[in-house]
Design a protein around this nucleic acid. Structure first.
Length: 411
DNA sequence: CTTGAGGCTCATCCCACAAATTCTC
DNA sequence: GCGAGAATTTGTGGGATGAGCCTCA
C-alpha cells in the first residue's frame, strides 16, 4: 500500500502533480485541478509505486509497476536480469481526463489495479472539459498520443535516447538524461529552427545566429507550465547549492549566452559534479537549471497547447520534443527579447503577453517559495512556538521580545 | 547621457534546541 | 551482527543585513 493523498490524507495517492509538488488521489486530483484554468494546466503523472514519493517516468511492463528514475535505476540499472525488462515511458497529462482518456494516455492504465478501481468509482462519468479538450494530453500534431512511447529493450550503454523519449539508457552510472553524446566541452545549442541552417548550430561563433526565436510560435499562456516544471525542480535540486540563486534570480536579466556557464561555475561540491556532468549538453539559454530538472524528473510531457512542435533539438526528433519542453526552452523564454531576436512588429505584438507571462511566472515562483516542504513537522511546531529576540531563537528562560503563542511583546 | 541617492526586492545568515543520524564500544 | 549510549548533524522560522537592481533628479 502506498502513501496517502497529500490533500485528503485519506485515499491512496496515485497521481503526482509537479506544479503542486503533491501526491494526490484521483478524486482530489480532479477536484484540485478542475478549480480553474490555471490548475487545469498542471502537469501530472503517476506516482512511483516503489518509493511513493517521486513522479513515475517509466512503467515496467514485466513487473507491472510504475517507477521514478531512481527506482528504475535501482531496479533495472544494476541487475543484468532485470535490465532487459520491457519498459514504457509515462507521459504527463493535464486537464481532467476520463477513465477512457486515461486509457488512451496510458495504454497500461487498466493494468494498474488501484487506478482501475479508483477510476471506476471516481472517474467513470468524467470527461475532458472544454479547456482540457485543447488536448493537454494530445500530441503536438493534435492527435491523442498513445501516452507510452514504447521503449522495449532499452538500449545498453552508449546508445543515445535522443529521438525516443527521455528514458535513460541503461548505463552503469547515474545518467544525465537527454544528453547527446559529444565532446565534453562542446557548446552546442539545444534549440534550432527547422529550415534554418543546421550545420551552424554546432559552431560556437554562430551560436546566437541560429536562435531565431521568431520562428517559434510560443504560446505565452504556457509559460507557467514550462517555467513551473523546470524551476520547481531546480529549486529542489539546488536549494542549498548556491546555484539556485543564480538561476532563480539572475535568469530574468542574465544574458542568454552565459547564464548557464555562470551557474556551472558557481555550483560547488556535489552540485558541481552534477553541473560538470551536464555542462556539455547544457550550452545555451536552455540553461542548466532546466537541464537539471531533466535529471531528476525526466518525464515526457505532451501539452498540445504548447506550440513548441516546431522546436527541435540537436539530435532529437520532433516526436520526442515533449521531453524537452520541460528541459529546454523554459528559462530562455524568461528573458524577454533575446539578444539574437531583432525587434519586429510580430514580437512587439507579443511583448504585452510576454510581460504578463513573466509576471505570472514571478507570482508563481513566489508562491512556490512559500510552499517549502517541511520535513519534520515536530520541528516546525517547536519553531513556531519558540520564543525569539529579533527573529532569533532565545534560550529557554531568557527574556524575549516575541512569543508566538502570545502575540503581545513580553518585555 | 552620466552619475549618485534613495527605495525596493531578495537571498542569506543568525539563533536554540529537539530530533535525526552517525559513531563508538 | 546487534544493541545501547554518546556525539554530531540537521532542520525549523522571524528578523537583520547586505547585495543588486531600478527609478528619478
Amino acid at each position: 500500500m502506498g502513501y496517502l493523498c497529500d490533500f485528503c490524507g485519506d485515499q491512496r495517492s496515485l497521481v503526482y502533480c509537479r506544479s503542486d509538488a503533491a501526491c494526490l488521489c484521483l478524486s482530489c486530483d480532479r477536484n484540485v485541478h478542475s478549480a480553474n484554468a490555471l490548475s487545469r494546466r498542471h502537469s501530472r503523472t503517476l506516482v512511483c509505486e516503489r518509493c511513493n514519493s517521486q513522479p513515475a517516468f517509466v512503467r515496467c511492463v514485466d513487473e507491472k509497476i510504475s517507477l521514478c528514475q531512481n527506482c528504475d535505476w535501482l531496479g533495472h540499472g544494476t541487475s543484468p536480469s532485470s535490465s532487459t525488462h520491457k519498459r514504457q515511458s509515462i507521459n504527463c497529462y493535464s486537464g481532467c481526463p476520463s477513465a477512457a482518456e486515461f486509457s488512451s494516455i496510458w495504454s497500461f492504465f487498466l493494468d494498474i489495479p488501484s487506478m482501475g478501481e479508483a477510476c471506476e468509482q471516481e472517474l467513470g462519468l468524467m470527461s475532458i472539459n472544454e479547456n482540457s479538450n485543447k488536448n493537454a494530453w494530445a500530441s503536438p500534431e493534435g492527435q491523442n498520443v498513445s501516452g507510452s512511447a514504447e521503449v522495449t529493450d532499452l538500449p545498453s550503454k552508449g546508445k543515445s535516447w535522443a529521438g525516443t523519449s527521455s528514458v535513460p539508457e541503461s548505463s552503469s552510472e547515474p545518467r544525465i538524461l537527454d544528453q547527446p553524446p559529444g565532446p565534453a566541452n562542446e557548446c552546442m545549442p539545444k534549440l534550432y529552427c527547422p529550415g534554418k541552417k543546421v550545420s551552424g548550430i554546432y559552431e560556437d561563433d554562430d551560436l546566437y545566429d541560429d536562435f531565431i526565436m521568431d520562428e517559434v510560435d510560443l504560446q505565452l499562456e504556457n509559460y507557467e507550465e514550462l517555467f513551473g516544471m523546470a524551476l520547481s525542480h531546480s529549486e529542489e535540486l539546488f536549494e542549498n547549492g548556491g546555484i539556485n540563486s543564480l538561476f532563480e534570480t539572475k535568469d530574468m536579466s542574465a544574458s542568454a549566452g552565459d547564464s548557464h556557464c555562470q551557474g556551472a561555475v558557481a555550483a560547488e561540491g556535489s552540485s558541481a559534479e552534477l553541473v560538470n556532468a551536464i555542462q556539455p549538453a547544457c550550452s545555451n539559454a536552455a540553461s542548466a537549471d532546466s537541464m537539471m530538472s531533466t535529471k531528476t524528473e525526466p518525464i515526457v510531457c505532451f501539452t498540445a497547447r504548447q506550440s513548441l512542435s516546431n522546436i527541435s533539438f540537436s539530435g532529437v526528433t520532433k516526436d520526442s520534443v515533449g521531453g524537452y519542453q520541460d528541459c529546454g526552452a523554459s528559462s530562455m523564454l524568461l528573458m524577454g527579447e533575446p539578444p539574437w531576436c531583432p525587434p519586429c512588429p510580430e514580437s512587439s505584438l507579443h511583448s504585452a503577453n510576454r510581460s504578463n507571462a513573466v509576471m505570472r511566472y514571478k507570482e508563481k515562483k513566489k508562491t512556490r517559495k512559500f510552499e517549502k516542504k517541511v520535513r519534520y513537522a515536530s520541528r516546525k511546531a517547536r519553531a513556531d512556538v519558540r520564543k525569539r529576540v529579533k527573529g532569533r531563537f532565545v534560550k529557554a528562560g531568557d527574556v524575549y521580545d516575541y512569543d508566538p503563542l502570545n502575540q503581545t511583546r513580553s518585555c
